[in-house]
Simulated assay, not measured.
Amino acid sequence: MNLILSWNVKGLNVVEKRLQIRNLLRTWRPDIVCLQETKLEWIARGIVRSIWSCPYIDWLYLGFKGASGGIVLMWDQRLVEKVEEAVGQFSVSCKFKNVGDMGQI
């Protein structure tokens, strides 16, 4: 069974907030993380690594439009493999399968 975390973070511009999220991810140990309302236009590896310290992370994102929005979807590649992806005007979607398993999420 996979642990999926979805969270409205109300902005990732502040380093302290990213550290707080990082500490919670370390405690909860999710397989897939979706953060909404990032309020970031661009999400590079440095931002992702400051949120989730897993070296096997992959991600998709949708930058913000106007004063709100922004989505980042991250996953641990040791546990799930991305099968399909779609980044729309207001959404980010992925189809995953468990690594070493035929089941899809």
Rank of each mutant, 00 (worst) to 15 (best):
W7F: 13
G63T: 06
S93R: 12
R78Q: 01
K17H: 06
V9K: 11
P55A: 11
S6L: 10
S53L: 06
I57M: 15
Q20T: 13
L19R: 15
V99Y: 03
R26P: 06
E37L: 14
W42I: 11
I71Y: 10
N2E: 00
E84P: 04
A67Q: 14
V15A: 03
L73W: 01
V99N: 02
V15S: 05
V83C: 07
L25K: 10
E81V: 00
L3A: 08
W75R: 10
R78K: 08
Q104S: 00
W7I: 07
C54N: 15
I21A: 09
R26Y: 02
G70W: 15
M102L: 00
L19W: 11
D76T: 04
G66V: 03
S91D: 09
G63C: 10
N98F: 01
N2M: 08
T27L: 06
Q36C: 15
R45N: 10
A86R: 15
T38R: 04
D101R: 01
L19Q: 15
S93P: 00
E41A: 13
S93F: 03
A67M: 07
W52F: 05
L5F: 09
W28L: 12
L40Q: 10
Y61H: 15
V92N: 09
C34Q: 04
W52G: 07
R78S: 03
R26S: 05
K39I: 00
L12N: 01
S91G: 02
G103V: 05
S91K: 04
L24I: 03
G63Y: 10
E16P: 02
L79Q: 02
Y56I: 01
F90R: 14
V83Y: 01
W7V: 13
E41C: 07
F90C: 13
G70H: 13
D58W: 05
V80C: 02
K17T: 12
G11C: 09
E41G: 14
S68K: 12
G100A: 01
